[in-house]
């Protein structure tokens, strides 16, 4: 078990390989479909508008050496106005494949947490940055929510609760490296092997 603390140095990322289990600690940011589209359109491919400056600077600070989590949580608003994560498992990552490499490069991300794995473009970005793809256990939402010790802030709540960008402090968040910075992808390997088995079963 590798214990990682955000911001994560490059040498710790390079030391990780497919199959390693990781316990993650520090401040991470959730972002899924709407957030990725927003970052690409408002921060990365176009000049940052004055009204978005503050958020942009905040994200640059949080994501430099940091981690983004593909997650749309169930949250509870407490009487004092603060938030609690009730259930917070990963969402399917492949939908962000068209955005992820640019987001990794632009913000110097060291990790992307999600489920189901990502494609060749993200794998390449992981090699170059370096960064890793960290697989959380899909559906283990109540268990993962226990790792979320504090909801620090929420941005873009107008996207709706699942799509908002939640800034959270996690302790001992359990994940598995399924794409590393050495060009290895467990997803690619399993797909390759299962294809051979399918062809054998179908006799094609």
């Amino acid at each position: 078990m590798h214990k990682l603390t955000i911001p994560i140095p490059d040498e710790e990322i390079r030391a990780l390989h497919v199959g390693d289990t990781v316990s993650l600690n520090g401040i991470i940011v959730t972002g899924r479909d709407a957030a990725h589209k927003f970052m690409i359109e408002h921060f990365i491919r176009n000049p940052v508008a004055p009204e978005d400056e503050a958020l942009y600077e905040e994200l640059k600070r949080l994501l430099n050496g940091g981690v983004i989590y593909h997650c749309g949580p169930v949250v509870r608003k407490n009487a004092d106005g603060s938030w609690t994560f009730v259930a917070a498992g990963p969402t399917t990552s492949i939908r962000e494949e068209i955005y992820q490499p640019e987001v990794i490069a632009h913000f110097n991300l060291k990790g992307v947490i999600g489920k189901g794995g990502m494609g060749p473009n993200t794998l390449k970005a992981c090699q170059e940055q370096p960064a890793v793809y960290l697989h959380a256990i899909g559906g283990a939402a109540t268990l993962i929510a226990q790792s979320v010790r504090e909801v620090v802030a929420v941005h873009k709540l107008e996207f709706g609760i699942p799509e908002a960008m939640w800034v959270i402090r996690v302790e001992d968040f359990p994940v598995v490296v399924t794409m590393d910075s050495h060009g290895q992808s467990l997803h690619e390997a399993v797909e390759h092997e299962s294809k051979a088995r399918l062809e054998a079963l179908l006799g094609v």
């Binding site: 169930v74 256990i137 559906g139 939402a141 109540t142």
Partner: peptide
């Protein structure tokens, strides 16, 4: 490991009366 985590989560969700998965 994945199935073990899933089983722990199922138990925890039942005890706490919170969603098994956040995608309800």
């Amino acid at each position: 490991g994945a199935l073990d985590t899933i089983l722990k989560n199922i138990e925890m969700a039942r005890e706490r009366s919170t969603p098994i998965c956040q995608d309800t």
